[in-house]
C-alpha cells in the first residue's frame, strides 16, 4: 500500500529543507567544479579563459595521475579490508564478553570521536623515526623504520592511522549485526555438532553480509574521500608521491598550488568514479548479499 497525502503541496514542503541543503551544499558546488574544469584561471579570478578539455587532457597524459589512482586503490582497499577484519574480530569477541560488557564496548567506540587530523598527528608522533616509541621499538626489533624515506612504510603508516579510527565505526555495526543473529540457529547448529568456527563461517558470517556490504561501501568512500586530513598530518603525500591519493592531489593542486582549473578537472573525475563505484556495488555485489 502506498501512502498518499491529501494535498500536493505538503510533501514538497516537507522535502524542501533537505532539497535546499542538497542544492546549496552539493549540487551548486558540483556545478561550479564542472564549469571550472573547462577554464584556466589565475588564482585571484582576475582573468579567465575557456580552454575546453585541456585540463582533462593534461590530467590523462600525466603518468603521475595514474600512479595516484593506483595508490588510491591500494590505500582504500587496505583501509577497508584491515579495518573491517579487525572490527569483526573485536565484535565477535565483544559479543562473548559477559562481565563489563558495556565498559568494553564503550572503550572500543571511543577512537571514533577523535578528529582525523588529530588521529594523524597521534600516529605521526608514535612512528616518528627519531623519537616515536613504536619506531624506536621497531628499531630494536631490527626494522629500520623511516617513513620519510620509505614509500611502503609511509603507506603502512597512513593505512594504520586511517584504519584505527574507522575500526570503532565498523565495530559498532558488526556488533549490532551479531546481536541480530537468531540464537536458535546457532544453538541448532551446535546441537548438530558444528564447531564454533564452522558455525561462524556457515551461519553467522552469511547472515552478516548486509552489514558487511554496507560497511564495505562506507569504508571505501571514507578511504577515498575523508582521509586527506590524516595524510596531510602524517606524510603530506610523500615520500615522492607514494601516499598521494586522488583526493589529496585535488587538495594539493587546488588549495596549495592554486591551480583551480586542474583541480576542478580532478574533482569531476572523482565524481565520475564515485558514481561508477556506487553503480557497480549496487548492481553486482548487492545481488549476492542475503538480506534475510
Amino acid at each position: 500500500m502506498t501512502v498518499t497525502f491529501p494535498q500536493k503541496g505538503l510533501p514538497w514542503l516537507l522535502l524542501l529543507p533537505q532539497l535546499l541543503v542538497t542544492a546549496i551544499f552539493f549540487l551548486w558546488p558540483a556545478e561550479q567544479a564542472l564549469e571550472q574544469a573547462f577554464y584556466q584561471e589565475d588564482a585571484f579570478g582576475l582573468s579567465r579563459e575557456f580552454i575546453g578539455l585541456e585540463n582533462f587532457a593534461d590530467l590523462f597524459t600525466d603518468p603521475l595521475y595514474y600512479q595516484s589512482m593506483l595508490t588510491t586503490l591500494v590505500f582504500s582497499f587496505s583501509v577497508a579490508i584491515v579495518g573491517m577484519s579487525l572490527a569483526l574480530l573485536l565484535a565477535v569477541m565483544a559479543d562473548r564478553v559477559v562481565r563489563g560488557k558495556l565498559a568494553y564496548q564503550t572503550l572500543l567506540i571511543w577512537p571514533y570521536a577523535v578528529a582525523p587530523a588529530l588521529a594523524g598527528v597521534l600516529w605521526w608522533i608514535l612512528f616518528d623515526p627519531s623519537m616515536g616509541p613504536i619506531a624506536l621499538w621497531l628499531k630494536t626489533a631490527g626494522v629500520n623504520w623511516n617513513h620519510y624515506l620509505d614509500g611502503n612504510q609511509a603507506m603502512i603508516l597512513v593505512v594504520i592511522a586511517s584504519t584505527w579510527k574507522q575500526i570503532s565505526y565498523n565495530f559498532l555495526f558488526f556488533l549490532a549485526g551479531l546481536q541480530a543473529v537468531p540464537r536458535s540457529l546457532i544453538e541448532a547448529a551446535a546441537i548438530d555438532g558444528a564447531s564454533p568456527f564452522k558455525r561462524f563461517w556457515t551461519i553467522v558470517f552469511p547472515l552478516l553480509s548486509p552489514t558487511t556490504f554496507f560497511l564495505l561501501v562506507v569504508n571505501l568512500v571514507y578511504a577515498f574521500f575523508e582521509t586527506f586530513g590524516v595524510i596531510d598530518a602524517t606524510t603530506k603525500g610523500g615520500p615522492g608521491q607514494s601516499t598521494t591519493t586522488l583526493v589529496y592531489k585535488v587538495f594539493d593542486d587546488g588549495f596549495v598550488g592554486l591551480d583551480l582549473g586542474g583541480s576542478a578537472a580532478q574533482s569531476v573525475v572523482l565524481m565520475a568514479i564515485v558514481g561508477l563505484m556506487t553503480v557497480i556495488q549496487f548492481r553486482f555485489i548487492e545481488r549476492k548479499v542475503q538480506y534475510s
Binding site: Y148, L149, D150, G151, G238, P239, G240, Q241
Partner: peptide, 9 residues
C-alpha cells in the same frame, strides 16, 4: 621534494 626523496632512497 619528490625528486630529492627519490635520490635519498
Amino acid at each position: 621534494d619528490e625528486a630529492l626523496e627519490s635520490v635519498w632512497s
